[in-house]
Design a protein around this nucleic acid. Structure first.
Lengths: 129, 129
DNA sequence: TGACAAACAGATGAAGATATATTAATTTAA
DNA sequence: TTAAATTAATATATCTTCATCTGTTTGTCA
């Protein structure tokens, strides 16, 4: 449901959020260690997050990453959307094009995806300890 | 949540189930066309289903595949389990080892996986139109 | 200028999905 | 009874996507 990259991104964001009081930029190395993410791979993820404006990157000595917005105003979906397209969950689980919602799994599946979507939308980064 | 292979397997099984009245063995070619599955790939899937005893294969002229058990007694999970291990859904969505269930996504996620598991267990092949 | 840190490019690896080709079993027809 | 046609079984190769690693470049501060 979530790709490894998506999971890493949430982990990284929530860590940065949890440490932002310090004001001091967080090193990617530190984040990688604390959150158990391969450091070079994390680098790409952080870069993408920075491009999207969710964090700000600071180069050079005393550099690192800092939040740009209040952590309570960033929802998990915003993060995830940068790394995977969750596709239209409205579709049939079995990928049947003809399916009009009568495929036996359809109703239950759409309940599930609905809950999943709500979870992403309603959970903010600061809630993800 | 389901791999492509898992999806194909359910599609194939449900098609065989829906046609079993005829008694005549179904060709893999036919199943592939009707259910939009790459024929050679389907061949492997059917083979696996046959090994597991969910269907029986008949070689040679007039051969094909037939059901071995009443379609109302085969649940979706049985099919899926042959092609993917769904892992322990009990775990933390974010893969946090330390997570004691307090990770903000945990509660909602475990509800979701619970429903998903129930869907697989309680839906029989004949219900998957 | 030199050390530090992020940014970027590219190569590698692994898993899953798909395609190609060959082999084995069975039936039918000559 | 034999040969041809049909069909599944199997083995192998390719393609794709995602994840990971390696190395180089660029920017910044002391």
């Amino acid at each position: 449901m979530l790709s490894q990259t998506g999971i890493y991104a949430i982990r990284a964001m929530s860590y940065i959020a949890s440490q932002q009081e310090d004001e001091k930029p967080l090193l990617s190395r530190t984040i990688a260690e604390e959150m158990q993410i391969p450091v070079n791979f994390l680098s790409k993820i952080l870069n993408r997050l920075a491009q999207a404006g969710l964090i700000r990157s600071i180069r050079g000595r005393n550099g690192g990453f800092v939040m740009t917005r209040p952590k309570s105003e960033i929802c998990v979906r915003e993060v995830v959307d940068l790394f995977m397209q969750l596709g239209d969950h409205k579709d049939c689980l079995l990928g049947l094009k003809k399916c009009d919602g009568s495929c036996g799994l359809h109703h239950r599946w759409s309940n599930i995806t609905e809950q999943f979507d709500m979870m992403l939308d309603e959970t903010t980064i600061d809630k993800v300890k």
